[in-house]
Amino acid sequence: MKGKVTGIILFVSLLLFGGCGPREENILNVGMELAYPPFEMTDTEGNPTGISVDMAHELGKFLGRPVKIWNISFDGLIPSLKTGKIDIVISSMTITEERSQSVTFSKPYSKAYLALLVSQDSPVEKVEDLNRKGRIIAVKKGTTGHLYAREHFPLARINVFDKESACVLEVVQKKADCFIYDQMTILTNWQKNRDTTRAILKPFQKDFEYWGMAMRKDDVELHRKVNEFLGSFKESGGFERLADKYLKEEKKTFEELGIPFFFSP
């Protein structure tokens, strides 16, 4: 009986305290949410693909480290980085002051701005119409759209969702006046729902949103090397190559509409 108890205790403690071997040092663990085509997505077989994925592999080549991509929900990226589960975030993340307090960003590699997907019947014509009582704004949790709405539209009601598809559905079904997200996603969703939505693509922010790769604050070495990589990648025309590979149609649509194309590092 006693032997059995000791055995169980030993087994449990092994379960609890075992398996804390050293982490694989050399692998570059890259975190991104694979839900933002064509930057972060999966192919039909479920393998990560997209502009950020290609960039991650280029970065790995530059550093001479094998790359492992981790699919993590957007609002979990920074916490995963801080707990050391991943080494770097390449997930179309905008550099903000708030985020900069907990992580360090590379120099910007792309820029974007927010746009509105407006419900067909909503009286909203421009951004200034949003900060009123009774307006309902759908946002995706943790995105710059969410943070922007919270700061600039305190009178409106802000409904927070996990997925951008839910936000679009809210607008389509007139449950929300508008959805604030980046220009390209708004454009694609408006094209899919022309009967029920309008798109306001005119930039309303004072400045572009700049995207950067996020790293831990104490990871100075990686930070330096990533900036070096971005410099050489730009010089060698890497961004144009990626834009040609993934953003051909978008580029054409933007030119037709006369809106400045945003993926222009």
Partner: peptide, 20 residues
Amino acid sequence: SIISVSEFTLNAQEVNAYTY
């Protein structure tokens, strides 16, 4: 919380999004 009912979990998730 997935239909944006502002209950306990969603509020905690929002605080997480604001403060990381």
